[in-house]
Design a protein around this nucleic acid. Sequence first.
DNA 1: AGTACTGACCGTTCAATATC
DNA 2: GATATTGAACGGTCAGTACT
Length: 271
Amino acid sequence: MYASGLHQHRFAPSAAVAPAVAALWVNECGFDTAGVSIPRAEPHLVVRFGPSARRGLDFHAIGARQRAHRKVIRSGQRTVMVRLHLGTHGAVFGVPSSVIADRIVPLEDLWGVAATRELGERLFEARQVPEVVAILEEVIARRLPASEAHEAPTQLALDAAARLGTARVNDVAKALGVSERTLRRVFREAVGMSPKEFSQLTRFHRALREARAGLHVDWAGIASATGYYDQAHLIAEFRKIVGVTPRAFLGELRGAASSTTGRERGARSET
DNA sequence: AGTACTGACCGTTCAATATC
DNA sequence: GATATTGAACGGTCAGTACT
């Protein structure tokens, strides 16, 4: 999430939650502003404090998303974002990824009223950001199984995801020893989107990363380097995913990421 | 028999590519 | 840039198999 005037504090996940948590950060904003979230396949756990939250504090699970969405961030709002690894939805949320795909689900619908009320009370009392992060990590760690091994269907989807960059779905299915239909079924259940949609999102992120890194002088170069047929297709894909052209979206992000700090347990890159 | 899982087939959609 | 063509990917459905 990026927004004008937004302060972002990043935390390296502790060893206890590292198998499930890919990134953890806190956004704070001192005045009303606009924000845009970049769509991702990974599920997120979000805790909001402040004027936008119900009763001053609420938490949600956000599933795999294929489209950016924009919203107003109110002054005084603090948002704790936890990005999970693909395939950990079952352990952390207790449901298949397909259940929360393209949705924002109140955590109490997944964890139950009692568990979320207890968590809410603890978070409400914890005023300092590191304390909030520690509580969240403790709660997530408690939900993780002793073994890091995934169930077979989830592992199949993860193996497919690792190969899906440029390979065709049918070829990936063959390489993994299942039919294309089975791979598609399993993948959608485990990831919350189709293999093709996952490939497109992966390619979009690659192009965005290259553009932000400034490795190419023009969009045609980025399109060529990241697997798009041509610049026109790159632009069409950006329009579909984030609603605007690549140049406009970069401008939106540049204007947004005005203040970002990496600290506490070590800084990492964040998109 | 009922259930769960898988593969195969089919018609449709749409992205990729070629051509004008 | 607009349009046409091609083929990959999709979801629905059904049959086969294994298991209870």
